[in-house]
Design a protein around this nucleic acid. Structure first.
Lengths: 400, 400
DNA sequence: GCGCCATGGGAAACCGGTGTCAATTTCATT
DNA sequence: AATGAAATTGACACCGGTTTCCCATGGCGC
């Protein structure tokens, strides 16, 4: 077996050969400034090619350049290099240029670990979630990465189980140990006050993503689920439906309430009342959707349209409809929520309410970043995220 | 150019107040050993509750305990504490116990940044991928996390675009800057020799996940896609199909070849030849599946069964079949590959070949970890991952 | 020419760990 | 009891940055 990077030692091997330390990677740096004691500047990072062939400066080849190398070669102290890196305004223009030239030439980039150690804060954003939907999770990750691209920040994923005994200790340990730069909390973790309280206590910045404002604006990305659900109601009403039912999510989720209320009020606008008998609780799972729909469809006067709290359950409704011999959309219209990938592939394609999850992730990360920049007020007061209705083939006027 | 990611503070704001530094978090530690110059022991971490109320030792409250505190209180040098943390065998039993008691009492846990700085290696595992399937990505992340739980390692996700110009510089920058503990490379990144070559060059350990062995066993998790595809072929042959077609993936992917060859040889076992005319290239996307199936179904003698290289395309076949007025499975049997979540929700449910993605992620991470432990040979020589056929409702004997 | 003040820049300590290497103990032997 | 090897332990430098504190410099007003 190859012994590249042997880490064990019981066998006498020793590990992590220091000679294997990586080489430098080129970067570029930005300008601008603040006061001394600037603290935690994120550098603008561009991964350049390997083209910047450094002329020999007496560096050990194979060893990444450090701030000391830059200082020596540029003929300044390391503190001055640090000032340049951190965009301190107290550096004369020509000194700055000289240092930046050396930095560029050697492809120097500051070590995040060393920087983090000195800053008492890492350059890691944690995404802490307890959400079973791969689509949601991946899109949100993408969004967060969209926002941090080039900032030197990285994304650490931390799925967890909110019902587990050690949930709080686990999350706390994660945040504290990693000295997180910030945490992004999607539902349902975002709705857990224990978590936000604990994060505040340990000094970890966070941004919550939820269907209702639960915190200060700079710590919230609010998705107006209620409005999306109302939109769904209007859509069904517009098609001429009167006997309308809904399958809600589990009580545990804030979105269950918002989507329920939104739908109810959307119907109310048209003078239609969502009867209690027409509301069945689901669990945001496929199976619960099947069961709930079966129940609804067995009513003496069955609904002509069903709004499910999420797509997963809506797809379950398809199955119940099939079992009942109902034709979708003519015998039964179905509307979901989320726009899961499946929704546009199933037949008939599912009318649903789409949440721009990736954008939400990006916005959340941008709020986290805003603190380290000039506290961009525009970023901090981003308007609510408005879901959009995507009308597809699962909804149609009720058969007369 | 957009100025997203401005880090300037022209506005004078400075960030991340150092006073926000987090507090300590309780931990426990493990034993075992090696020789001096041990290096990089992963500690066993248990997130205990907040119960370990430390008796006063004159620590600044609100500040996490450091190795210095432990040393002072235990009456030993910090180096000895370090030895205990790193499970060095050169510590007398009673000294170790004394130190461990203090560590437990104060809930001390070593700072990964400081440790990483000294080790010249971080405690981060990078998952570097270019894979559009949320299901694949999330499951693999889960698997990796399954393996690293309690080890103090964290997972940093790094999606990327293999066709991008700065792909290599980007990945290299990531690995070098973060001094990754290791990288997990799922397809298609795992098949890119430029990446593995670069990682080797910069001294970053990695494990590749692919449908064929491309590297030393300790750096490979091999999924026998070929065997899975052969299983699919046997399944269809067993049902009595003779006119069988296949929709392959894009040439770019190794799995395309493996699945193609496996299917071909599976049919060959039964004396059936997969005619070239019955093989259409897809792109692993829904739309390409629809298009490919349309083409196949327009042949003078249309196939009675279609094997698609992945579920996404298989679902596309459903649509083409519907458009052609064919009943699945009686007019046309469909078999996919992956067992995407959608496959068990669509109707008729899709017969498919399931890859234990989560397990694959776990195995990959375990190989990474094995290096830092006692090089568990069992972990390093794990057998191939065998996909399993899941027979559902989309396949049936061909109509007479 | 002198004193003052604002600014640019450097020396040294420090962040919280680990590696090196020598000093101190412990213990079996002679 | 002296001796030498092996087992333990600690002092100190160092990882690669940042912060604190202080000095040097230069322009300006008198």
């Amino acid at each position: 077996m190859g012994n590249r990077c042997q880490f064990h030692f019981a066998t006498g091997g020793h590990l992590l050969d220091a000679s294997q330390v990586a080489r430098g990677v080129p970067r570029g740096y930005a300008r601008a400034g603040s006061r001394e004691r600037t603290g935690l500047q994120l550098s603008t990072i561009e991964d350049e090619g390997d083209d910047a062939g450094p002329t020999d400066h007496g560096l050990t080849p194979g060893r990444a350049a450090t701030i000391n190398d830059i200082a020596r070669i540029a003929g300044v102290s390391k503190k001055t290099v640090s000032r340049v890196i951190n965009q301190s305004p107290f550096v004369k223009a020509d000194t700055r240029e000289k240092v930046e030239a050396v930095i560029a030439e050697l492809g120097f980039s500051p070590d995040p670990q060393a920087r983090g150690l000195a800053f008492r804060r890492s350059f890691l954003i944690g995404m802490i979630y307890d959400n079973p939907s791969p689509n949601y999770v991946v899109n949100m990750q993408q969004g967060i990465l969209d926002a941090v691209r080039g900032s030197g920040l990285e994304l650490v994923v931390h799925p967890c189980d909110r019902t587990s005994d050690d949930f709080m200790a686990n999350v706390r340990g994660f945040a504290v140990r990693q000295k997180l730069f910030g945490a992004v909390l999607p539902p349902s973790v975002s709705e857990d006050e224990r978590v936000t309280g604990m994060l505040t206590e340990v000094g970890c910045p966070y941004v919550r993503i939820a269907s209702v404002s639960l915190d200060a604006p700079e710590r919230m990305v609010v998705t107006n689920d209620s409005r999306g659900a109302a939109e769904a109601a209007r859509h069904l009403v517009g098609l001429g439906h009167k006997r309308i039912a809904m399958i809600t999510g589990p009580d545990l989720f804030r979105s269950t309430h918002e989507r329920g209320e939104g739908f109810r009020s959307g119907l109310a606008e048209a003078g239609i009342t969502l009867e209690d008998a027409m509301v069945v609780r689901g669990a945001y799972t496929f199976d619960s959707g099947v069961a709930a729909a079966r129940e609804l469809l067995s009513r003496k006067t069955r609904p002509t349209a069903i709004f499910a709290g999420n797509d997963e359950m809506a797809i379950g409704v398809y199955q119940a409809a099939r079992d009942a011999g109902l034709d979708v959309p003519f015998d039964l219209s179905i509307v979901g929520f989320d726009d899961a990938p499946m929704s546009s592939r199933i037949w008939p394609t599912l009318t649903t309410v789409k949440l721009p999850i990736r954008d939400m992730g990006r916005m959340a990360a941008e709020k986290l970043l805003a603190r380290s920049r000039g506290l961009d007020p525009a970023k901090l007061e981003q308007p609510e995220v408005i879901p959009t209705l995507i009308a597809r083939d699962s909804s149609a006027p009720p058969r007369r």
